[in-house]
């Protein structure tokens, strides 16, 4: 068991200090990278996707050297990767491990799906209340009060 875990981890090399985001649904990896603005980062980043996972079949993983995320920053990814685990690495060792939590409010990262919403015609930062009803996640626009479902989320 121990060996198998180790072999799997090695597909994406270990980092000395930084953050590992594990158990990302394979199809959401690039969205997570975008939401966290890692595509514009100067930190060393390793990532892999479609890796075998005992829990989820296929998963994605991201390792960012020398970067530690604030929880409201990381919780944004819960919209597309609710299963993600955040692992803080210090000196090659796990110093902290936690699940991402779905935030109660989401600001600026998602576009309102309602074409007639004022946020789609004036430069207004979007703002949504997160509605969670029997595992179905929806965003309710603070302005137009319409809901945007997960399939219709477009990230800004």
């Amino acid at each position: 068991m121990e060996n198998k875990e180790l072999r799997k981890e090695l597909k994406v090399s270990a980092i000395e200090n930084g953050t590992v985001i594990d158990h990302i649904p394979a199809q959401s990896l690039f969205q997570v990278i975008k939401i966290l603005n890692l595509d514009k980062s100067n930190d060393q980043i390793l990532f892999g996707t479609n890796l075998d996972s005992q829990k989820f079949g296929k998963k994605g993983i991201i390792k960012v050297s020398n970067k530690y995320f604030k929880s409201d920053e990381i919780n944004k990814i819960a919209l597309v990767a609710p299963t993600a685990t955040l692992i803080v690495i210090k000196d090659y060792k796990v110093s902290e491990k936690k699940q991402v939590e779905i935030p109660v409010e989401v600001q600026k990262i998602v576009k309102c799906f309602n074409p007639n919403c004022i946020t789609n015609s004036e430069a207004i930062p979007t703002k949504f209340e997160v509605l969670k009803n029997e595992d179905v996640l929806k965003l309710r626009c603070h302005y137009c009060e319409k809901t945007t479902s997960k399939e219709n989320m477009v990230f800004l």
Binding site: N116, I118, T119, C141, Y143, C144, E145, K146
Partner: peptide
Amino acid sequence: HPKDGSARYASEVSPVPVINAGDGANQ
């Protein structure tokens, strides 16, 4: 205003109170 949510937005930028007399198909 014809846009949904316009009145909420106006109330956030306005220093005086706003009464919504209809914002699009919303309220």
